[in-house]
Simulated scan of single mutants.
Amino acid sequence: MKKKIGLFFGTFNPIHIGHLILANHLYQYSELDEVWLVVTPHNPLKKKSSLLNNHHRFEMVWRLCEDFPGLKPSDIEFNLPQPNYTMYTLTHLEEKYPDYDFSLIMGEDNLKSFPKWKNYEIILERHNIIVYPRFSEGQVDEIFKDHPKITHIDAPRIEISSTFIRQAIKEGKDVRALLPAPVWEYIDEMNFYR
Rank of each mutant, 00 (worst) to 15 (best):
N43M: 10
P73R: 03
H19R: 06
E137V: 14
L111C: 04
M87N: 13
L37H: 03
W36L: 10
L26V: 04
H16P: 06
E59D: 13
F102C: 08
N43C: 08
W36K: 06
E34I: 12
N191G: 15
T91I: 11
P44E: 11
D174H: 10
E59S: 13
I160G: 11
P69D: 12
P148K: 10
K118C: 02
L80R: 15
K72I: 10
K170V: 00
M190W: 08
E137T: 13
P133G: 04
K72P: 05
Y97M: 01
K48H: 08
E142N: 11
K47H: 05
E137K: 15
A23Y: 06
T163S: 15
P73E: 12
I76H: 06
L20V: 01
H55E: 14
I15N: 01
A181P: 13
T163V: 02
H25I: 02
L37M: 14
Q139C: 05
I105S: 04
N54G: 03
E189N: 05
Y27K: 07
L71T: 06
K173R: 14
R194M: 08
S136G: 13
E31R: 12
D146C: 00
E121K: 15
N54S: 14
V183R: 05
S113C: 05
E94P: 01
K4H: 08
R166A: 07
D141Q: 08
L26P: 03
K116C: 11
Y85C: 10
I122V: 15
P73G: 03
P44Y: 02
K118Q: 11
P182Y: 13
V175K: 08
R157G: 00
V39R: 10
D141N: 15
L80F: 02
S30I: 03
V39G: 06
L52K: 14
D109S: 12
K4F: 07
N43T: 13
Y193G: 05
E171W: 05
E94A: 10
L71Q: 09
L124R: 03
P115K: 02
F68L: 01
I129S: 07
M60N: 05
S74K: 00
Y88P: 00
K4Y: 01
P44D: 11
G6R: 05
R157T: 14
K116Y: 10
N119T: 00
Q28A: 06
N24C: 03
I160L: 15
E185F: 10
L26Y: 04
D146A: 11
G70V: 08
L93G: 00
L178G: 01
S113I: 11
E66M: 06
P81H: 09
M190C: 13
S50P: 10
L7E: 12
S162N: 03
I150D: 00
G70M: 09
I5Y: 08
S103Q: 12
W36M: 05
S103Y: 13
P41L: 08
V140W: 06
G18T: 10
H16Y: 01
P44A: 05
L37S: 02
D154T: 13
Q167M: 02
H152E: 03
T91D: 12
I150H: 00
